[in-house]
Design a protein around this nucleic acid. Structure first.
Lengths: 214, 214
DNA sequence: CGCGTATTTGATCTATCTCAAAGGCCGTGG
DNA sequence: CCACGGCCTTTGAGATAGATCAAATACGCG
Protein backbone atom coordinates (compact mmCIF):
# COMPACT_ATOMS: atom_id res chain seq x y z
CA UNK A 1 0.00 0.00 0.00
CA UNK A 2 1.35 3.40 -0.80
CA UNK A 3 2.80 5.52 1.97
CA UNK A 4 0.26 8.26 1.77
CA UNK A 5 -2.75 6.07 2.47
CA UNK A 6 -0.95 4.35 5.34
CA UNK A 7 -0.20 7.73 6.79
CA UNK A 8 -3.82 8.81 6.47
CA UNK A 9 -5.12 5.57 7.92
CA UNK A 10 -2.82 6.01 10.84
CA UNK A 11 -4.03 9.54 11.46
CA UNK A 12 -7.65 8.39 11.61
CA UNK A 13 -7.12 5.41 13.90
CA UNK A 14 -8.20 5.16 17.51
CA UNK A 15 -6.69 2.59 19.82
CA UNK A 16 -9.08 0.46 21.86
CA UNK A 17 -8.23 -1.94 24.66
CA UNK A 18 -10.52 -4.46 26.31
CA UNK A 19 -10.15 -7.23 28.86
CA UNK A 20 -10.50 -10.94 28.44
CA UNK A 21 -14.15 -11.88 28.14
CA UNK A 22 -15.30 -8.45 27.01
CA UNK A 23 -16.80 -7.65 23.63
CA UNK A 24 -15.21 -5.50 20.97
CA UNK A 25 -18.69 -5.22 19.48
CA UNK A 26 -21.95 -7.11 19.75
CA UNK A 27 -24.56 -8.41 17.35
CA UNK A 28 -27.23 -5.79 17.91
CA UNK A 29 -24.68 -2.99 18.05
CA UNK A 30 -25.51 -0.52 15.27
CA UNK A 31 -22.08 1.11 15.33
CA UNK A 32 -19.97 0.66 12.31
CA UNK A 33 -16.29 0.33 12.98
CA UNK A 34 -13.45 -1.49 11.36
CA UNK A 35 -10.81 -2.99 13.62
CA UNK A 36 -7.32 -4.27 13.18
CA UNK A 37 -6.33 -6.60 15.96
CA UNK A 38 -2.88 -5.77 17.29
CA UNK A 39 -2.30 -7.67 20.50
CA UNK A 40 -4.21 -10.59 21.96
CA UNK A 41 -6.76 -13.02 20.58
CA UNK A 42 -10.50 -13.30 20.26
CA UNK A 43 -13.28 -14.86 18.28
CA UNK A 44 -16.36 -14.02 16.22
CA UNK A 45 -19.54 -15.68 17.45
CA UNK A 46 -23.19 -15.87 16.58
CA UNK A 47 -25.80 -16.93 19.10
CA UNK A 48 -29.14 -18.55 18.44
CA UNK A 49 -32.18 -17.53 20.44
CA UNK A 50 -32.08 -20.70 22.54
CA UNK A 51 -28.45 -20.25 23.53
CA UNK A 52 -26.63 -22.36 21.00
CA UNK A 53 -23.51 -20.71 19.71
CA UNK A 54 -21.42 -20.89 16.59
CA UNK A 55 -17.90 -19.51 16.62
CA UNK A 56 -17.32 -18.27 13.11
CA UNK A 57 -13.60 -17.55 13.39
CA UNK A 58 -10.77 -17.19 15.86
CA UNK A 59 -8.98 -13.87 15.67
CA UNK A 60 -5.23 -13.46 15.61
CA UNK A 61 -3.05 -10.34 15.72
CA UNK A 62 -3.11 -8.67 12.34
CA UNK A 63 -6.69 -9.71 11.56
CA UNK A 64 -9.13 -7.14 10.24
CA UNK A 65 -12.61 -7.30 11.69
CA UNK A 66 -15.82 -5.53 10.74
CA UNK A 67 -15.04 -5.04 7.08
CA UNK A 68 -18.45 -6.47 6.27
CA UNK A 69 -21.23 -4.08 7.22
CA UNK A 70 -23.31 -5.45 10.08
CA UNK A 71 -26.40 -4.76 8.01
CA UNK A 72 -25.74 -8.06 6.29
CA UNK A 73 -23.90 -10.19 8.87
CA UNK A 74 -24.63 -10.41 12.51
CA UNK A 75 -21.76 -11.48 14.75
CA UNK A 76 -20.10 -10.41 18.00
CA UNK A 77 -16.37 -10.18 18.63
CA UNK A 78 -15.15 -11.31 22.04
CA UNK A 79 -11.70 -11.22 23.62
CA UNK A 80 -9.93 -14.43 24.64
CA UNK A 81 -7.17 -12.42 26.29
CA UNK A 82 -6.52 -8.75 27.00
CA UNK A 83 -6.75 -7.28 23.57
CA UNK A 84 -5.78 -4.09 21.82
CA UNK A 85 -6.92 -3.04 18.40
CA UNK A 86 -6.87 -0.11 16.03
CA UNK A 87 -10.30 1.19 15.23
CA UNK A 88 -11.64 3.27 12.38
CA UNK A 89 -15.03 4.67 11.59
CA UNK A 90 -16.43 2.72 8.67
CA UNK A 91 -17.32 6.00 6.95
CA UNK A 92 -13.72 7.18 7.16
CA UNK A 93 -12.55 3.97 5.57
CA UNK A 94 -15.20 4.38 2.89
CA UNK A 95 -13.97 7.88 2.15
CA UNK A 96 -10.37 6.82 2.09
CA UNK A 97 -11.18 3.99 -0.30
CA UNK A 98 -12.67 6.48 -2.71
CA UNK A 99 -9.49 8.46 -2.63
CA UNK A 100 -6.99 5.61 -2.67
CA UNK A 101 -8.37 2.80 -4.74
CA UNK A 102 -5.47 0.60 -3.80
CA UNK A 103 -7.05 0.44 -0.34
CA UNK A 104 -10.31 -0.96 -1.64
CA UNK A 105 -8.37 -3.54 -3.58
CA UNK A 106 -6.53 -4.61 -0.43
CA UNK A 107 -9.76 -4.82 1.49
CA UNK A 108 -11.36 -6.90 -1.22
CA UNK A 109 -8.48 -9.35 -1.08
CA UNK A 110 -8.78 -9.63 2.67
CA UNK A 111 -12.47 -10.35 2.24
CA UNK A 112 -11.71 -13.03 -0.34
CA UNK A 113 -9.40 -14.75 2.07
CA UNK A 114 -12.00 -14.65 4.83
CA UNK A 115 -14.51 -16.20 2.44
CA UNK A 116 -12.07 -18.96 1.49
CA UNK A 117 -11.49 -19.76 5.17
CA UNK A 118 -15.20 -19.76 5.90
CA UNK A 119 -15.77 -22.17 3.02
CA UNK A 120 -13.11 -24.50 4.40
CA UNK A 121 -14.93 -24.46 7.70
CA UNK A 122 -18.25 -25.09 5.98
CA UNK A 123 -16.78 -28.09 4.23
CA UNK A 124 -15.54 -29.45 7.55
CA UNK A 125 -18.89 -29.00 9.29
CA UNK A 126 -20.80 -30.49 6.40
CA UNK A 127 -18.66 -33.56 5.72
CA UNK A 128 -16.35 -34.49 8.57
CA UNK A 129 -16.53 -36.47 11.79
CA UNK A 130 -15.25 -35.31 15.17
CA UNK A 131 -11.73 -36.64 14.71
CA UNK A 132 -11.34 -35.05 11.30
CA UNK A 133 -12.70 -31.79 12.61
CA UNK A 134 -10.21 -31.60 15.43
CA UNK A 135 -7.31 -32.48 13.13
CA UNK A 136 -8.41 -29.67 10.85
CA UNK A 137 -8.67 -27.29 13.76
CA UNK A 138 -5.19 -28.03 15.07
CA UNK A 139 -3.54 -27.62 11.67
CA UNK A 140 -5.44 -24.42 11.06
CA UNK A 141 -4.45 -22.96 14.41
CA UNK A 142 -0.84 -23.96 13.85
CA UNK A 143 -0.83 -22.21 10.50
CA UNK A 144 -2.48 -19.08 11.82
CA UNK A 145 -0.17 -18.88 14.79
CA UNK A 146 2.80 -19.21 12.48
CA UNK A 147 1.47 -16.39 10.28
CA UNK A 148 0.77 -14.15 13.22
CA UNK A 149 3.75 -14.80 15.47
CA UNK A 150 6.22 -17.04 13.62
CA UNK A 151 6.05 -19.55 16.48
CA UNK A 152 5.97 -23.15 15.26
CA UNK A 153 7.29 -25.36 18.05
CA UNK A 154 4.00 -25.79 19.82
CA UNK A 155 0.48 -24.54 19.33
CA UNK A 156 -0.89 -22.35 22.06
CA UNK A 157 -4.66 -22.52 22.37
CA UNK A 158 -6.07 -19.59 24.34
CA UNK A 159 -9.64 -20.85 23.91
CA UNK A 160 -11.49 -23.37 26.09
CA UNK A 161 -12.63 -26.82 25.00
CA UNK A 162 -16.10 -25.33 24.88
CA UNK A 163 -14.96 -22.68 22.40
CA UNK A 164 -13.35 -25.31 20.21
CA UNK A 165 -16.55 -27.35 20.39
CA UNK A 166 -18.66 -24.41 19.26
CA UNK A 167 -16.24 -23.72 16.44
CA UNK A 168 -16.38 -27.31 15.19
CA UNK A 169 -20.06 -27.97 15.77
CA UNK A 170 -19.62 -30.70 18.41
CA UNK A 171 -19.83 -30.82 22.22
CA UNK A 172 -17.18 -30.13 24.84
CA UNK A 173 -17.08 -33.77 25.86
CA UNK A 174 -16.48 -34.89 22.31
CA UNK A 175 -13.62 -32.42 21.88
CA UNK A 176 -12.07 -33.59 25.11
CA UNK A 177 -12.39 -37.24 24.21
CA UNK A 178 -10.89 -36.78 20.75
CA UNK A 179 -7.96 -34.87 22.25
CA UNK A 180 -7.35 -37.84 24.51
CA UNK A 181 -7.66 -40.32 21.66
CA UNK A 182 -5.25 -38.63 19.28
CA UNK A 183 -2.83 -38.05 22.14
CA UNK A 184 -2.86 -41.77 22.93
CA UNK A 185 -2.40 -42.56 19.26
CA UNK A 186 0.76 -40.49 19.40
CA UNK A 187 -0.41 -37.89 16.89
CA UNK A 188 0.02 -35.03 19.33
CA UNK A 189 1.49 -34.31 22.73
CA UNK A 190 -0.46 -32.30 25.30
CA UNK A 191 1.92 -30.82 27.88
CA UNK A 192 -1.14 -29.09 29.29
CA UNK A 193 -4.68 -28.62 27.96
CA UNK A 194 -3.76 -25.36 26.25
CA UNK A 195 -0.52 -26.46 24.63
CA UNK A 196 -0.38 -28.86 21.70
CA UNK A 197 2.67 -30.28 19.97
CA UNK A 198 2.09 -31.98 16.65
CA UNK A 199 4.04 -35.23 16.52
CA UNK A 200 2.77 -36.65 13.24
CA UNK A 201 1.85 -33.82 10.93
CA UNK A 202 1.44 -35.93 7.85
CA UNK A 203 -0.99 -38.29 9.51
CA UNK A 204 -2.99 -35.36 10.89
CA UNK A 205 -3.07 -33.77 7.44
CA UNK A 206 -4.44 -36.96 5.95
CA UNK A 207 -7.13 -37.15 8.58
CA UNK A 208 -8.10 -33.53 8.12
CA UNK A 209 -7.62 -33.38 4.37
CA UNK A 210 -5.99 -30.06 5.11
CA UNK A 211 -2.54 -29.35 3.84
CA UNK A 212 -1.01 -26.19 5.20
CA UNK A 213 1.38 -24.46 2.85
CA UNK A 214 4.57 -25.22 4.72
CA UNK B 1 -22.56 1.24 -12.55
CA UNK B 2 -21.68 3.84 -15.13
CA UNK B 3 -22.59 3.25 -18.74
CA UNK B 4 -19.07 3.13 -20.03
CA UNK B 5 -17.94 0.22 -17.87
CA UNK B 6 -21.09 -1.74 -18.66
CA UNK B 7 -20.41 -1.21 -22.30
CA UNK B 8 -16.82 -2.37 -21.96
CA UNK B 9 -17.84 -5.40 -19.89
CA UNK B 10 -20.33 -6.32 -22.54
CA UNK B 11 -17.73 -6.07 -25.28
CA UNK B 12 -15.41 -8.46 -23.43
CA UNK B 13 -18.01 -11.10 -22.58
CA UNK B 14 -18.28 -14.53 -24.14
CA UNK B 15 -21.47 -16.53 -23.88
CA UNK B 16 -21.20 -20.12 -22.71
CA UNK B 17 -23.90 -22.78 -22.69
CA UNK B 18 -23.76 -26.18 -21.02
CA UNK B 19 -26.19 -29.03 -20.44
CA UNK B 20 -27.66 -30.30 -17.23
CA UNK B 21 -25.08 -32.26 -15.29
CA UNK B 22 -22.07 -30.65 -16.98
CA UNK B 23 -19.49 -28.48 -15.26
CA UNK B 24 -18.95 -24.81 -15.85
CA UNK B 25 -15.54 -25.29 -14.26
CA UNK B 26 -13.89 -27.87 -12.01
CA UNK B 27 -11.76 -27.82 -8.91
CA UNK B 28 -8.40 -28.61 -10.50
CA UNK B 29 -9.11 -26.38 -13.48
CA UNK B 30 -6.41 -23.69 -13.58
CA UNK B 31 -8.41 -21.41 -15.83
CA UNK B 32 -9.48 -18.15 -14.36
CA UNK B 33 -12.84 -16.95 -15.53
CA UNK B 34 -15.62 -14.93 -14.01
CA UNK B 35 -19.17 -15.93 -14.88
CA UNK B 36 -22.53 -14.32 -14.62
CA UNK B 37 -25.31 -16.84 -14.69
CA UNK B 38 -28.08 -15.83 -17.05
CA UNK B 39 -30.43 -18.74 -17.57
CA UNK B 40 -30.76 -21.96 -15.58
CA UNK B 41 -29.52 -23.09 -12.21
CA UNK B 42 -26.51 -24.84 -10.75
CA UNK B 43 -24.46 -25.30 -7.63
CA UNK B 44 -20.95 -24.95 -6.24
CA UNK B 45 -19.55 -28.14 -4.77
CA UNK B 46 -16.40 -29.38 -3.08
CA UNK B 47 -15.51 -33.05 -2.97
CA UNK B 48 -13.42 -34.84 -0.39
CA UNK B 49 -10.97 -37.50 -1.45
CA UNK B 50 -13.26 -40.29 -0.22
CA UNK B 51 -16.27 -39.06 -2.15
CA UNK B 52 -18.11 -37.00 0.40
CA UNK B 53 -19.47 -33.80 -1.04
CA UNK B 54 -20.39 -30.40 0.29
CA UNK B 55 -22.57 -28.13 -1.79
CA UNK B 56 -21.42 -24.63 -0.93
CA UNK B 57 -24.17 -22.72 -2.69
CA UNK B 58 -27.01 -23.05 -5.15
CA UNK B 59 -26.74 -20.74 -8.13
CA UNK B 60 -29.57 -18.63 -9.48
CA UNK B 61 -29.80 -16.44 -12.57
CA UNK B 62 -27.96 -13.22 -11.92
CA UNK B 63 -25.33 -14.81 -9.68
CA UNK B 64 -21.68 -14.05 -10.23
CA UNK B 65 -19.32 -17.00 -9.94
CA UNK B 66 -15.56 -17.20 -9.86
CA UNK B 67 -14.90 -13.78 -8.39
CA UNK B 68 -12.60 -15.42 -5.88
CA UNK B 69 -9.40 -16.66 -7.47
CA UNK B 70 -9.20 -20.43 -7.43
CA UNK B 71 -5.76 -20.13 -5.91
CA UNK B 72 -7.48 -19.72 -2.57
CA UNK B 73 -10.78 -21.59 -2.92
CA UNK B 74 -11.33 -24.87 -4.62
CA UNK B 75 -14.85 -25.56 -5.87
CA UNK B 76 -16.57 -26.84 -8.99
CA UNK B 77 -19.69 -25.36 -10.60
CA UNK B 78 -22.22 -27.81 -11.99
CA UNK B 79 -25.44 -27.25 -13.92
CA UNK B 80 -28.80 -28.38 -12.53
CA UNK B 81 -30.49 -27.50 -15.79
CA UNK B 82 -29.38 -26.32 -19.20
CA UNK B 83 -27.47 -23.21 -18.35
CA UNK B 84 -26.17 -20.14 -20.09
CA UNK B 85 -23.73 -17.67 -18.63
CA UNK B 86 -21.61 -14.71 -19.58
CA UNK B 87 -17.92 -15.34 -19.16
CA UNK B 88 -14.98 -13.01 -18.78
CA UNK B 89 -11.27 -13.58 -18.46
CA UNK B 90 -10.29 -12.76 -14.91
CA UNK B 91 -7.41 -10.64 -16.20
CA UNK B 92 -9.80 -8.53 -18.26
CA UNK B 93 -11.93 -7.92 -15.21
CA UNK B 94 -8.80 -7.03 -13.26
CA UNK B 95 -7.82 -4.52 -15.91
CA UNK B 96 -11.27 -3.04 -16.08
CA UNK B 97 -11.36 -2.68 -12.29
CA UNK B 98 -8.19 -0.63 -12.43
CA UNK B 99 -9.80 1.69 -14.92
CA UNK B 100 -13.27 1.89 -13.40
CA UNK B 101 -12.99 1.73 -9.65
CA UNK B 102 -16.72 1.63 -9.30
CA UNK B 103 -16.51 -1.90 -10.70
CA UNK B 104 -14.20 -3.07 -7.96
CA UNK B 105 -16.56 -1.59 -5.40
CA UNK B 106 -19.46 -3.51 -6.87
CA UNK B 107 -17.50 -6.70 -6.89
CA UNK B 108 -16.48 -6.20 -3.30
CA UNK B 109 -20.10 -5.79 -2.31
CA UNK B 110 -21.06 -8.96 -4.12
CA UNK B 111 -18.29 -10.75 -2.26
CA UNK B 112 -19.55 -9.39 1.05
CA UNK B 113 -22.98 -10.76 0.35
CA UNK B 114 -21.58 -14.16 -0.53
CA UNK B 115 -19.65 -14.17 2.73
CA UNK B 116 -22.77 -13.27 4.70
CA UNK B 117 -24.68 -16.12 3.08
CA UNK B 118 -21.87 -18.56 3.71
CA UNK B 119 -21.81 -17.54 7.37
CA UNK B 120 -25.55 -18.15 7.64
CA UNK B 121 -24.97 -21.62 6.26
CA UNK B 122 -22.08 -22.20 8.65
CA UNK B 123 -24.30 -21.27 11.55
CA UNK B 124 -26.94 -23.72 10.38
CA UNK B 125 -24.47 -26.58 9.98
CA UNK B 126 -22.86 -25.89 13.33
CA UNK B 127 -25.95 -25.45 15.47
CA UNK B 128 -29.11 -26.85 13.94
CA UNK B 129 -30.89 -30.18 13.69
CA UNK B 130 -32.30 -31.70 10.53
CA UNK B 131 -35.72 -30.10 10.82
CA UNK B 132 -34.26 -26.64 11.42
CA UNK B 133 -31.87 -27.09 8.52
CA UNK B 134 -34.62 -27.94 6.08
CA UNK B 135 -36.76 -25.04 7.24
CA UNK B 136 -33.80 -22.74 6.67
CA UNK B 137 -33.21 -24.22 3.25
CA UNK B 138 -36.80 -23.75 2.11
CA UNK B 139 -36.97 -20.15 3.25
CA UNK B 140 -33.64 -19.39 1.66
CA UNK B 141 -34.65 -20.93 -1.66
CA UNK B 142 -37.94 -19.07 -1.57
CA UNK B 143 -36.12 -15.81 -1.05
CA UNK B 144 -33.57 -16.46 -3.75
CA UNK B 145 -36.21 -17.52 -6.24
CA UNK B 146 -38.12 -14.38 -5.50
CA UNK B 147 -35.01 -12.25 -6.07
CA UNK B 148 -34.15 -14.03 -9.29
CA UNK B 149 -37.54 -14.51 -10.89
CA UNK B 150 -40.14 -12.71 -8.80
CA UNK B 151 -42.10 -15.95 -8.44
CA UNK B 152 -43.49 -16.40 -4.92
CA UNK B 153 -46.47 -18.74 -5.15
CA UNK B 154 -44.50 -21.95 -4.90
CA UNK B 155 -40.85 -22.87 -4.60
CA UNK B 156 -39.44 -24.82 -7.46
CA UNK B 157 -36.53 -27.04 -6.45
CA UNK B 158 -34.48 -28.17 -9.44
CA UNK B 159 -32.07 -30.12 -7.23
CA UNK B 160 -32.45 -33.69 -5.98
CA UNK B 161 -32.93 -34.74 -2.36
CA UNK B 162 -29.32 -35.81 -2.46
CA UNK B 163 -28.20 -32.32 -3.43
CA UNK B 164 -30.23 -30.81 -0.62
CA UNK B 165 -28.70 -33.34 1.76
CA UNK B 166 -25.17 -32.41 0.73
CA UNK B 167 -26.00 -28.75 1.11
CA UNK B 168 -27.34 -29.21 4.62
CA UNK B 169 -24.84 -31.77 5.86
CA UNK B 170 -27.32 -34.63 6.35
CA UNK B 171 -28.29 -37.73 4.35
CA UNK B 172 -30.83 -38.16 1.57
CA UNK B 173 -33.06 -40.28 3.78
CA UNK B 174 -33.11 -37.67 6.49
CA UNK B 175 -34.07 -34.96 4.03
CA UNK B 176 -36.84 -37.11 2.64
CA UNK B 177 -38.15 -37.99 6.09
CA UNK B 178 -38.17 -34.37 7.26
CA UNK B 179 -40.02 -33.32 4.12
CA UNK B 180 -42.67 -35.89 4.96
CA UNK B 181 -42.84 -34.80 8.60
CA UNK B 182 -43.28 -31.08 7.95
CA UNK B 183 -45.76 -31.86 5.20
CA UNK B 184 -47.84 -33.90 7.66
CA UNK B 185 -47.55 -31.14 10.22
CA UNK B 186 -49.16 -28.86 7.67
CA UNK B 187 -46.19 -26.51 7.37
CA UNK B 188 -45.79 -27.09 3.66
CA UNK B 189 -47.60 -28.70 0.75
CA UNK B 190 -45.73 -30.92 -1.70
CA UNK B 191 -47.66 -31.15 -4.98
CA UNK B 192 -44.68 -33.12 -6.25
CA UNK B 193 -41.19 -33.71 -4.88
CA UNK B 194 -39.81 -30.67 -6.69
CA UNK B 195 -42.54 -28.21 -5.84
CA UNK B 196 -43.04 -26.76 -2.36
CA UNK B 197 -45.73 -24.45 -1.14
CA UNK B 198 -45.17 -22.83 2.21
CA UNK B 199 -48.36 -22.97 4.26
CA UNK B 200 -47.12 -21.62 7.59
CA UNK B 201 -44.31 -19.21 6.96
CA UNK B 202 -44.14 -17.85 10.48
CA UNK B 203 -43.82 -21.27 12.04
CA UNK B 204 -41.10 -22.21 9.54
CA UNK B 205 -39.26 -18.98 10.30
CA UNK B 206 -39.32 -19.74 13.99
CA UNK B 207 -37.98 -23.22 13.40
CA UNK B 208 -35.22 -21.97 11.13
CA UNK B 209 -34.48 -18.76 13.00
CA UNK B 210 -34.34 -17.25 9.55
CA UNK B 211 -36.44 -14.24 8.77
CA UNK B 212 -36.48 -13.31 5.15
CA UNK B 213 -36.85 -9.65 4.45
CA UNK B 214 -40.36 -9.74 3.08
C1' DC C 1 -7.28 -21.72 51.49
C1' DG C 2 -11.61 -22.25 49.15
C1' DC C 3 -14.66 -21.27 45.39
C1' DG C 4 -15.81 -21.30 40.68
C1' DT C 5 -14.68 -22.82 36.39
C1' DA C 6 -12.63 -26.05 33.07
C1' DT C 7 -11.26 -30.67 31.84
C1' DT C 8 -11.72 -35.40 31.77
C1' DT C 9 -14.00 -39.78 31.94
C1' DG C 10 -17.93 -42.91 32.44
C1' DA C 11 -22.73 -44.50 31.46
C1' DT C 12 -26.65 -44.05 28.92
C1' DC C 13 -29.63 -42.15 25.29
C1' DT C 14 -31.02 -40.59 20.81
C1' DA C 15 -30.96 -38.17 16.31
C1' DT C 16 -29.26 -39.36 12.44
C1' DC C 17 -26.87 -42.70 9.55
C1' DT C 18 -26.73 -46.98 7.20
C1' DC C 19 -28.63 -50.71 4.84
C1' DA C 20 -32.47 -52.48 2.42
C1' DA C 21 -36.39 -52.62 -0.44
C1' DA C 22 -40.53 -50.94 -2.83
C1' DG C 23 -42.64 -47.69 -5.95
C1' DG C 24 -42.66 -43.89 -9.31
C1' DC C 25 -40.99 -41.28 -13.22
C1' DC C 26 -38.63 -40.57 -17.53
C1' DG C 27 -36.09 -41.38 -21.57
C1' DT C 28 -34.52 -44.84 -24.81
C1' DG C 29 -34.82 -48.25 -28.01
C1' DG C 30 -37.08 -52.09 -30.01
C1' DC D 1 -46.51 -47.55 -28.51
C1' DC D 2 -44.88 -50.15 -25.00
C1' DA D 3 -41.29 -52.39 -22.22
C1' DC D 4 -37.15 -51.86 -19.85
C1' DG D 5 -33.47 -49.86 -17.15
C1' DG D 6 -31.79 -46.37 -14.47
C1' DC D 7 -32.31 -43.00 -11.24
C1' DC D 8 -34.86 -40.81 -7.66
C1' DT D 9 -37.90 -40.75 -3.63
C1' DT D 10 -39.89 -42.75 0.16
C1' DT D 11 -40.28 -45.77 4.08
C1' DG D 12 -38.77 -49.32 7.38
C1' DA D 13 -35.50 -51.59 10.59
C1' DG D 14 -31.41 -51.68 12.89
C1' DA D 15 -26.74 -49.62 14.05
C1' DT D 16 -23.82 -45.91 15.85
C1' DA D 17 -21.35 -41.51 16.45
C1' DG D 18 -21.94 -38.19 19.18
C1' DA D 19 -25.13 -35.95 22.64
C1' DT D 20 -26.62 -35.78 27.23
C1' DC D 21 -26.29 -36.48 32.05
C1' DA D 22 -23.35 -37.15 35.89
C1' DA D 23 -19.37 -37.06 38.73
C1' DA D 24 -14.42 -36.78 39.88
C1' DT D 25 -10.40 -34.13 39.40
C1' DA D 26 -7.43 -30.17 38.36
C1' DC D 27 -6.44 -25.38 38.04
C1' DG D 28 -6.28 -20.47 38.82
C1' DC D 29 -7.67 -16.46 41.22
C1' DG D 30 -9.09 -13.56 44.97
Amino acid sequence: MDDESIYELDALATRVTINKGEYLFEEEDPTRYVYNLQVGMGYLERLSSDGRRQIMAFLYPGDFIGLIPDSIVSVSAKALSPLTACRWEMKDIDKLMEKHHELEHRIRRIGNRVLATTMDQLFILGCKNARERLAFFLLQMEKRQKMATGETKSIHLPMTRGDIADYLGVTVETVSRVFTIIKEEGLIALPDPYEVIILQREELENIAEYYSVT
